[in-house]
């Protein structure tokens, strides 16, 4: 398994190297026209709201106009396929990308219409670690209580999350694998319906993003966070590692350009997103986001690591 991945990794590096040689430097012309920033999801989601915050900052920094467009459908796949097929590799068309979506869909679907390698990643600019959340009056005081219940009552514990083969789902599968219990994962269409599911008692627990845990405040109890360290915004919630489970993961959001874009242009954009993270962080960190700046080789490593971790579930 890992052999295949390392081959792919070499291939990826090769493609990147080829681009460096093949494309003449045209970074001095950048930007020469308005930038299209495509969001492959519906308005109102985390990706959209983030892009709307970045839009004016980008315009100010680059001195050109930036247009955020939505192209929802197929869990992002439609926009990603269209982008890889048609977008110009000159830095004026950028697209929002998400982990695990762009890793999981091409493996799991017969023909997603795009490939994970078809993007040159500018940067992964933030992530929302996964959390396990129960209602405030739930009998589960700790994660152990929950696992214990699931062990004694196979399949009885229902855990809601957003989508199938999504980050939430994969985390639920990993939790099952590590603890050797049977839970019933119930997919919902996005994060939107999850508060109703948990407050209405339609599911026993929810695996979702840290932002949900912060947003729902005292109505819920966060049993565990899948981050390396405790979150400032959820100081009482232990990490999975503290509880003895090696689960660190979340939804990463970033931006990409098509293969073959000049590395100088990618760097200009990557620096800009890093700079914007300072301003964005003031607003988004209190909402439960973790600002990141994962670019270049690291960005590819991140995807390869996730593919190793979750690849078995997807086949």
């Amino acid at each position: 398994m890992s052999e295949i991945f390392s081959t792919r990794r070499t291939a990826l590096a090769g493609v990147m190297a080829a681009c460096i040689v093949a494309v003449p430097a045209m970074a001095q012309d950048f930007p020469s026209r308005a930038i299209e920033y495509i969001i492959p999801f519906n308005p109102g989601g985390e990706s959209d709201v983030t892009a709307r915050l970045q839009e004016p900052l980008m315009e100010e920094a680059l001195g050109i106009s930036v247009n955020v467009r939505h192209q929802p459908g197929g869990g992002g796949a439609v926009a990603w396929a269209d982008f890889q097929a048609n977008a110009e590799p000159d830095g004026h068309e950028i697209i929002g990308i998400n982990i695990p979506h762009i890793v999981a869909q091409p493996i799991q679907r017969a023909d997603a219409g795009y490939t994970t390698e078809g993007f040159d990643i500018i940067t992964w600019f933030h992530m929302t670690p996964h959390v396990v959340v129960v209602r405030e009056d739930s009998p589960f005081q700790t994660l152990d209580d929950m696992i214990e219940f699931a062990r004694e009552n196979p399949q009885s514990l229902t855990v809601g999350g957003s989508g199938t083969f999504s980050g939430n789902h994969l985390e639920a599968l990993r939790l099952q694998e590590l603890t050797d219990v049977q839970i019933t994962y119930i997919p919902f269409t996005g994060t939107g319906p999850l508060p109703a599911a948990i407050l209405g008692g339609h599911v026993g627990a929810v695996i979702s993003n840290s932002t949900l845990g912060v947003e729902m405040g005292d109505n819920v109890r966060v049993l565990a966070v899948a981050s390396e360290e405790r979150l400032e915004t959820l100081p009482d919630a232990p990490t999975f590692r503290e509880l003895g489970l090696d689960i660190v993961g979340g939804t990463y959001r970033g931006v990409a350009v098509p293969n073959g874009t000049a590395p100088e242009i990618i760097e200009v954009l990557a620096d800009l997103f890093t700079e914007m993270n300072q301003t964005l962080g003031e607003r988004q960190v209190p909402m439960g986001f973790q600002m990141t700046d994962i670019r270049g080789e690291d960005a590819i490593d991140l995807m390869v690591r996730l593919r190793e971790q979750y690849g078995d579930f997807l086949n």
Binding site: G74, G75, A77, V78, A81, D82, Q108, R109, A110, D111, A112, G113, G163, T164, F165, S166, P187
Partner: peptide
Amino acid sequence: GGESRFTFGWPP
């Protein structure tokens, strides 16, 4: 289920 249905072999 998250699977693609009735796309008749056409990703869009």
